[in-house]
């Protein structure tokens, strides 16, 4: 009996210790790749230390089906989700997300207006740009008309699968000014024009779905040009790849932190969002990947070299288009269906 006692005691102590060590585990969902890594370093790891919780990152490509399924089944296992702007708006209307308690996040007025939503806090500004491999393309494409110029730039091109962005790009390639793109696209003739322009490229198109694909295609030489998230090209440049960006006609948008409705950790999640919205944290993030901060005081903390690569740099934003998520919330389904019909022909 006596030899058993210490072991028993140890077991009791150990189980006590694990009980003390059992931390809150928070699941945070992001778009993975270079962006996910930057979030991990700038946001998750410091927050783990500061708040004593464990952050479990999960990757996705923005599909909202899982959020909807979790909320409908009242079994929410995602606590914080990086969500694209049209999905934040739509999900907010349909009751998929918790309302943000802005008094806990900070001063609303400090955030850029586009980054403030009832159900979301803007994380960063990002752009979809023209990217190309400077080892293969000698003369840089200047705008979307060059992207469409098959004679000057023969070869395949990659675009994100779906109607979003591509119809805007097609109209700009067809000579529509960025400021008029959504006005034109809202008319039946404008939509027709966009699809007709897109059809010119059809035999030369390769779709991408994950943000990591365009730089891969470009490096492997599968495509000559691609639409791409600007941060992914930045990440490839940091790995020594000779990929370049053309900012003219880029479309910028905001990604948001959201909390799926009924998350058991919504209190910690709200704390995390407040933590990650701090200008110093956002500056750390912008140094790791060239996505623009949403807190107005962050810009002052960044040096000129970092600033020059952000979508918000004046030179980059000059001929850019702001993504109109309300337009896409209304017209998205019908345009996407038409796109699917068009792509299938």
């Amino acid at each position: 009996m006596p030899p058993c006692l210490p072991r028993l005691l140890a077991a009791v102590l150990l189980s006590g210790a694990t009980a003390v060590l059992a931390q809150t585990t928070v699941t945070v969902v992001n778009f993975g790749g270079a962006n996910g890594n930057a979030q991990k370093k700038a946001y998750y790891e410091p927050f783990e230390k500061a708040a004593g919780v464990r952050m479990v990152p999960v990757e996705y490509n923005g599909e909202q089906a899982k959020v909807k399924a979790m909320v409908e089944a009242r079994k929410v296992t995602w606590d914080i989700v990086e969500t694209e702007s049209p999905d934040v708006d739509r999900g907010c209307d349909e009751g998929l997300f918790e309302r943000i308690d802005w008094s806990r996040i900070g001063n609303k007025a400090d955030f850029l207006p586009a980054a403030v939503h009832d159900c979301g806090v803007g994380i960063f500004f990002w752009s979809t740009v023209i990217a190309y491999n400077a080892d293969r393309v000698k003369e840089p494409p200047r705008h979307w008309a060059d992207f469409w110029d098959l004679r000057k730039y023969p070869g395949k091109r990659a675009l994100r699968k779906g109607a979003r962005y591509n119809l805007e790009f097609a109209l700009m390639a067809d000579g529509v000014k960025p400021a008029d793109v959504y006005k034109v696209l809202a008319t039946p003739e404008g939509a027709e024009r966009a699809f007709r322009k897109l059809a010119e490229l059809k035999p030369h198109l390769q779709w991408w779905e994950a943000g990591a694909q365009p730089p891969q295609f470009l490096v492997a030489g599968d495509v000559i040009m691609a639409s791409s998230y600007n941060g992914r090209i930045d990440a490839a440049q940091r790995e020594g790849r000779n990929l370049r960006i053309t900012w003219t006609g880029s479309i910028f948008d905001v990604d948001f932190w959201t909390i799926p409705k009924g998350s058991p950790n919504r209190d910690v999640a709200m704390r995390f969002i407040a933590f990650a919205s701090d200008p110093d944290r956002q500056a750390d993030y912008a140094r790791l990947i060239s996505y623009g901060p949403t807190h107005s005081k962050t810009l002052g903390k960044l040096d000129a070299k970092v600033l020059a690569n952000l979508p918000s740099a004046p030179a980059n934003a000059k001929d850019a288009l702001r993504f109109d998520f309300r337009f896409w919330a209304d017209q998205g389904e019908v345009l996407e269906k038409r796109f699917a019909a068009w792509a299938a022909q």
């Binding site: 089906a65 349909e94 996407e336 699917a340």
Partner: peptide, 10 residues
């Protein structure tokens, strides 16, 4: 198409 309607369009 099933994935498009399930995941993207909801």
């Amino acid at each position: 198409s099933v994935a498009q309607y399930a995941n993207v369009e909801l």
